[in-house]
Design a protein around this nucleic acid. Structure first.
Length: 188
DNA sequence: TACTCGATCGGA
DNA sequence: CCGATCGAGTAA
């Protein structure tokens, strides 16, 4: 069975825990033609608060970062390097700027590639993560064993300085660990 | 208004 | 390793 992820969860859990929790959930896109595309989330990164020098909110409230201060459950989509649309989920209570970058899903590895693959751009910035917006999250009951999850530092944030760049706030699913290998040769 | 630099990617 | 490509943020 599947259930749409409720905003309540996104507002109450801690940012880093949510980045991990999102692994194994489905990112679901409904295109203009009505077709839906559900992809298992395989890679995420947490960005948490003005103190986090890798987070866009490090400079406080600006026109771009305002959406990060909203209560969890809306999308933050911005343009990076003039080319790539980056998809983030705003999380946490209103007033606390935090977001989770969706870096990889089934069939699309890399934040720029996944938005291109799913037809996601800045027109979804500030949109709520509910079916009516065309982009939402579902829990389809996939259980991700802890051994399938890896933690590493975030990608491309050296500018944040050694302390914040080193935070192990990137989470990935090792696909091999998700699908256990077939049993070996039958025992005699 | 000028200038810098990206939460990337694909091609030498 | 390098260039693409453009808007946000900063300084002036």
């Amino acid at each position: 069975m599947e259930s749409v992820v409720e905003a309540e969860v996104l507002r109450t859990k801690k940012t880093v825990a949510l980045a991990r929790w999102l692994l194994g959930k489905h990112l679901v896109r409904r295109a203009a033609d009505g077709r839906t595309d559900a992809r298992l989330i395989l890679e995420t990164e947490a960005y948490d608060g003005e103190r986090d020098l890798a987070c866009h909110a490090r400079a406080g409230r600006t026109a771009r970062t305002e959406v990060m201060y909203a209560a969890g459950g809306v999308w933050y989509v911005y343009l990076c390097y003039g080319i790539h649309e980056m998809l983030n989920l705003v999380v946490g209570p209103a007033g606390w700027p935090a977001a989770i970058l969706i870096r990889g899903v089934e069939g699309a590895s890399g934040p720029g590639r996944l938005t291109r693959s799913l037809g996601i751009d800045r027109s979804l910035n500030r949109a709520p993560a509910v079916p009516g917006s065309g982009l939402w999250l579902e829990d389809r009951g996939i259980r991700v064993p802890p051994r399938a999850i890896s933690r590493t530092p975030r990608i491309g944030v050296d500018y944040a300085g050694p302390v914040w760049a080193a935070k192990p706030w990137r989470f990935t699913i090792d696909p091999r660990a998700l699908r256990p290998p077939p049993p070996g040769p039958a025992r005699a």
